[in-house]
Measured scan of single mutants.
Amino acid sequence: SNREKAKQAFKELLRDKAVPSNASWEQAMKMVVTDPRYSALPKLSEKKQAFNAYKAQRE
Rank of each mutant, 00 (worst) to 15 (best):
S1N: 13
K43P: 06
K55R: 10
A28D: 04
A9E: 13
R37F: 00
A50K: 01
Q57K: 08
K48L: 15
W25F: 15
M29W: 04
A9V: 13
L41G: 08
N22K: 03
R15F: 14
A50M: 12
K5N: 12
A53I: 06
L41C: 05
Q27I: 07
R3Y: 03
L14W: 00
S45H: 13
K7W: 13
M31A: 08
K55L: 10
V19A: 02
E26A: 07
P36I: 02
F10N: 14
Q8D: 13
S21M: 14
V33R: 13
S39P: 03
A18M: 11
A28Y: 00
V19R: 02
K17L: 02
K55N: 07
A18C: 13
L13Y: 03
V19Q: 06
Q57E: 15
Q27E: 15
K11V: 15
W25A: 09
S21C: 13
A53K: 10
T34S: 13
M31D: 08
D16P: 00
Q57G: 12
L13E: 06
K43S: 15
A9P: 03
S45G: 08
K7Q: 14
N2M: 05
S45R: 07
Q49L: 06
A28R: 02
K30H: 06
F10I: 08
V32N: 07
K43W: 06
P36H: 05
M31F: 02
P20E: 06
A40M: 15
E46G: 01
M31G: 09
S1E: 09
Q27C: 05
A28W: 01
N2T: 14
E4L: 09
S21Y: 13
S39H: 14
K47R: 11
E4R: 04
E46S: 01
R58H: 13
D35H: 01
D16Y: 00
S24M: 02
E4M: 05
K11P: 07
P20R: 02
Q49R: 11
Y38N: 04
E12H: 07
V32F: 02
A40W: 02
E4C: 01
A56M: 11
A18T: 08
M31C: 05
K5V: 12
A23Y: 08
D16G: 02
K11G: 10
K30A: 12
Y54E: 06
Q27S: 05
D35Y: 00
L44A: 11
L41S: 03
L14Q: 07
R37K: 11
R15D: 09
K43D: 15
P20C: 02
A40Q: 05
L13M: 15
E59Q: 13
K47G: 07
K47N: 01
S24D: 06
S1P: 04
A53R: 04
S45N: 13
W25I: 08
